[in-house]
Design a protein around this nucleic acid. Structure first.
Lengths: 214, 214
DNA sequence: ACAGTTTCTTACTCATGAGTATCATATCTA
DNA sequence: TAGATATGATACTCATGAGTAAGAAACTGT
């Protein structure tokens, strides 16, 4: 190996592979931003391509269909949440504490591109096959959260009630972050997540000194 | 007027007017159901027309554009909530109690066709002009709710915190009902609304006997 | 009976955008 | 130097669906 090899204009095989992957990521990144801003159906791949200084067939060199691009976006968003949820579920501690940690991760994800895409994507925008997987992943997450809430109700750290509706209420509140959060605004992801989670955990009714713990 | 007039096949002018209005309503009703199920862009007016046993130009006899139909749907949903919100704001009582009443109306609306449509419709599906009105109505409602929350924080009936984020968290949780509620399911609108509102008002943390009031 | 109005249909136009066929170029391997 | 492979562009096809033009049929008032 000469020292020339390091700055040669010809790339090694693994570098070529990495470049291809970077380009694929760039397509995904441009696409998810456009999906989030204009909506999936209003986004044309011609526009996505133009924003990357290429033409549409180039995108088809990296992805098979438009649906594949969308599904890859929501898959990333959902798998991120799912992994975080399952990691939290595996820990021990009061249901309340595990739930707080889980909801915090969940809320932060909702402020990121792929998380936002999950919420802004409706079932009917995906093909039947993708839709099935999409729903499956969402259900997994909902069930994990519900189990944590049920654990908390059982150990007394969470107020008793309908765990199903509580799950939907809580996740709904956090999902909504994906609809209004502005990354370029004054609030950070973490601030928003912390405030929203606190509202949900404590509720709107005022607490009274000395009643927080048994 | 003979008694024949009552069962004559020829209608009086006001009856003709009423019939026209009924047909317009039927178009709106068929459209909003399809928008909610398939999404606005995936709904073709050909299909809506076919479901009413007419053809597309008939729809254009009752509405100017597809956007007009959608906007009429979201307008109805939003004006229903806005009127309820302003009526509640005008009452007196603790912020907490007014908020509970307001959120209940809000939640119930989210289980109805036009309310669901408001939530399932994204900004970018409307023309710029409709979008401006759409946002204006939504902002009015958000501001009313925020004022009620701020009143409650001032009078001590609601826990202090960031009223803006509290508003988004609460409305987000209720908006989400429009995404999962199934009118043909086992839960009634009122049951769902009551349970969701209770979760939000009381929070997830358990209460302790005798600490509810001062 | 006749002119006008209401209601609805048939048969279009036209823009958009997903996806493809084909070719060009450059790099890699032998 | 001769294929083989990777990457991209040009120039299409094709389905879909919003919106329209023109007219038919029924009813209204004169």
């Amino acid at each position: 190996m000469t020292s020339q090899a390091a700055c040669s204009p010809w790339l090694k095989p693994e570098e070529r592979k990495r470049e291809r992957n970077e380009k694929r990521e760039a397509v995904l990144s441009a696409a998810v931003k456009s999906f989030n801003e204009q909506g999936f159906r209003a986004t044309s791949l011609d526009d996505v391509a133009a924003s990357l200084n290429v033409t549409k067939p180039t995108i088809y060199y990296y992805f098979k269909t438009k649906d594949d691009i969308l599904f890859e976006c929501v898959r990333r968003g959902l798998e991120g949440i799912r992994d975080a949820a399952e990691a939290v579920e595996a820990t021990n501690g009061a249901g309340m504490d595990r739930l707080r940690a889980l909801l915090n991760d969940y809320a932060v994800t909702m402020t990121k591109d792929f998380g936002m895409c999950v919420i802004r994507t409706s079932d009917h925008e995906l093909t039947p096959e993708s839709r099935t997987k999409f729903r499956g992943l969402k259900r997994e997450i909902d069930e994990t959260i519900r189990r944590v809430i049920e654990d908390g109700m059982a150990d007394g750290s969470i107020a008793r009630g309908d765990a199903r509706i509580a799950t939907f209420t809580v996740t709904g509140a956090l999902n909504w972050i994906a609809k209004w959060f502005d990354p370029s605004g004054p609030l950070s992801s973490e601030d928003v997540a912390a405030a929203a989670v606190e509202t949900l955990m404590a509720g709107l009714a005022p607490r009274h000194a000395g009643t927080e713990t048994d």
